[in-house]
Amino acid sequence: MNRLYVYPRLPAHVAEQLLTLHTGRDLVELRRLSTTADARTTWYPTAPHRVAEDDLRALQQTVRGIATEANWPAPLSKTNGTAFDRLLAPALYRQMTIVPADAASEEVWSFLSLVLLPDIALWRWPNPLRRPGYERIIGRPRNVFRRLWTRVHSLGEDLGARLYEDEAVAILERPTLGAHPRVARAIAHGHLAVAGEAGAARTDILRITARRLRRLAVVVSLESLDDTQLAQLVGRYTKEAIDQLRPVTTASTYNHQFPTQVQTRSGVSP
């Protein structure tokens, strides 16, 4: 197994201070202010391997290299932002080799965004409204780097890169679907296999599929299904979602009779 590292943690109150200070700052100035160590950081106490400053520096260079390709510090368009994310995600994931449990710490991502790479974080997400707890910069799940890392960790590089942002969110932000890597990958794979060519409608299709899966998961244990079963399930739901999104020509009606009770049963005697 590869050696895994823990990362410096920037306490929440410091992160908020820094966010206020950094918001609106010139990007070149932010690059100058960036550093690989801050005395106010802490570490997961019992980790055998802390990431070395040299490695943090190498990470800085990697991320900055990708940003340069995307014309940093020129402002990013939405499309270019997505393209940048797509390039960054696998590089970030591969290079960090972070203990996954450590990657669940908000403070780790706050450090990355506000100390190590503020020039990139606030370029990607400039916080124009100057929100004090801006979720893209503070290390919450939608943090600029954290969400990319999580995407690759859960979905793998290939699937992670092929999904649109909204699609990834639809899967990953739902614990039922995103928390179990095998299930998450099956959903992404099945969705791309059936709806991959659907263009902009893909997101709507996946939204319907995801809704049905989250409902299904109450009655069916998704993780107990094997890969084939999962693939079939997702494939079917995706097709039905595509159908559902087609313009409706005939309204379906539900015309039930009043029940004639064939059988009732209760597991517990009242």
Partner: peptide
């Protein structure tokens, strides 16, 4: 009541 009852409708669908 704590447990709902499963039933079948005349058309064979569940309720």
């Amino acid at each position: 009541h704590p447990r709902p009852r499963q039933t079948l409708l005349a058309d064979g669908s569940r309720a």
